[in-house]
């Protein structure tokens, strides 16, 4: 079990290391988006008068980015695995469903960790937010978010026959995450019905942990409920996702 899981995670990371363009993009995309965020927010001086601090949003934007990239990548890679026949080959060659799903989580967690590190460095230099003190809760939350993203990705991959068919599913996840998770608009300011809907948006729980720990200087333990909920959502999604793999292991 562990060795097969590890073989899959290692294989995924090895593929990414080979793919120079992907490597460059996975570092450049967070960089460009964070820069964009900084200059857009800085060019709106009225925000400061409203008491909005640009730096407050940076960690939430970072979480959003990691969530989004891991979701899209894992969906596309799994669709490609199915289309190219490598998924069927994995099954015939002795890999089990849970090994495949957890192996993907392992592989993407490494990538998400690299992206998180990039983002944390950027936050220090662009926004002058030093997160070293909160590195453990931030890293754990990002990791849990990566698990959720892969679970969603595996699940969605069942509905696409090729990489192109993944694209309609991107806004399906992005728009609710952007509007209902508390990244851009505080949840308490939403209409009551949408506040209820926000409970099914996984990013909501990550935002709740990060906003509490980083912005409001709360202890990680006081934010344990949303963190465990996020982990629970991740575990449920993974279990569900591994059942939705149509192939017989």
């Amino acid at each position: 079990m562990i060795s097969n899981l590890n073989a899959i995670a290692v294989r995924i990371n090895r593929q990414f290391l080979r793919d120079r363009r992907f490597m460059a993009l996975s570092v450049a995309v967070p960089l460009v988006l964070m820069l964009l965020l900084k200059y857009v927010l800085n060019s709106l001086p009225q925000l400061a008068r409203l008491g909005v601090h640009v730096s407050d949003y940076s960690i939430l934007a970072a979480a959003f980015l990691v969530h989004f990239l891991a979701y899209v990548l894992s969906t596309i890679v799994l669709v490609r695995d199915r289309k190219d026949g490598t998924l069927a080959r994995m099954f015939v060659y002795g890999f089990r469903r849970r090994e495949i799903v957890l192996g993907y989580v392992g592989g993407y967690s490494t990538i998400a960790a690299v992206q998180t590190a990039v983002v944390l460095l950027l936050m220090k230099y662009l926004f002058d937010v030093n997160l070293l003190a909160d590195i453990v809760p931030v890293a754990l939350t990002m990791l849990a978010l990566a698990v959720v993203s892969v679970g969603l990705g595996v699940f969605i991959s069942n509905f696409a026959r090729n990489e192109g068919q993944v694209f309609p599913f991107i806004p399906l996840m992005i728009v609710p995450s952007a509007l209902l998770s508390g990244v851009a608009i505080p949840i308490r300011n939403l209409p009551a019905a949408l506040q209820w809907v926000s409970y099914v948006v996984p990013l909501r729980y990550a935002v709740s942990v990060l906003a509490g720990v980083v912005q409001q200087r709360q202890s990680f333990f006081s934010r344990l409920t949303p963190f465990l909920t996020l982990l629970g959502v991740g575990a449920a999604l993974l279990a569900g996702a591994s059942l939705t793999l149509r192939e017989r292991e």
């Binding site: 294989r11 090895r14 593929q15 080979r18 793919d19 190219d84 026949g85 490598t86 069927a88 080959r89 015939v92 060659y93 002795g94």
Partner: peptide, 17 residues
């Protein structure tokens, strides 16, 4: 499966490896 070899229709291998 332990005793058979299976070659799918597509090459079904990883291009980057």
């Amino acid at each position: 499966r332990r005793r058979l070899g299976y070659m799918p229709q597509e090459p079904a291998l990883y291009e980057d490896l």
